[in-house]
């Protein structure tokens, strides 16, 4: 399931709901991304998505993750709009029969979301505001998932 929302994320509630009534899975791994203050240089973030297009891109990513790691269920909830420092930006949860698949699935999803997902992110702070792009480490993280030439666009 995918949802983009401007409202705050209830991370505990989302995780509880995701795990509820599941006897078919052996483990759930979740990740919550928070807006850092960067030693006072950032007061908040502004995240813009392209409604319809961004969800489709994430849905395709989820299909790839589900297939690659045999995930039984996947949840991606992403904030858009203004996000204050310390607030959750993204929540990802992966359910699988075995823990390793769930760990790797969440890792794969986050590396792709962080570097390639159709979002535009503006950093707000005392020094003004500016649009930011993925860091080189984000691309290095992404490279970990390339296993063949056909994965070059991962």
């Amino acid at each position: 399931m995918i949802r983009l929302q401007t409202e705050s994320l209830d991370v505990g509630g989302l995780l509880n709901l995701f795990c509820q009534g599941r006897a078919d899975i052996g483990g759930v791994v979740s990740f919550t991304g928070l807006a850092r203050h960067e030693d006072g240089r950032v007061t908040g973030l502004e995240l813009e998505a392209y409604p319809g297009f961004t969800e489709t891109w994430i849905a395709d990513l989820i299909l790839r993750a589900n297939h690659r790691f045999s995930l039984l269920d996947t949840l991606v909830i992403h904030r858009t709009g203004l996000i204050a420092q310390g607030e959750a930006i993204v929540f990802v949860a992966c359910a699988a029969r075995h823990r390793r698949q769930a760990f790797e699935g969440a890792d794969f999803l986050m590396d792709h979301l962080k570097s390639q997902a159709p979002f535009w992110k503006k950093q707000h702070g005392p020094g003004g505001e500016h649009w930011i792009e993925p860091r080189s480490i984000d691309y290095q993280d992404l490279d970990r998932w390339k296993t063949s030439p056909s994965d070059a666009t991962d």
Partner: peptide
């Protein structure tokens, strides 16, 4: 028509 500058990621 949407013009999409380089994406920031989430």
């Amino acid at each position: 028509v949407a013009f999409l500058p380089p994406m920031s990621g989430g």
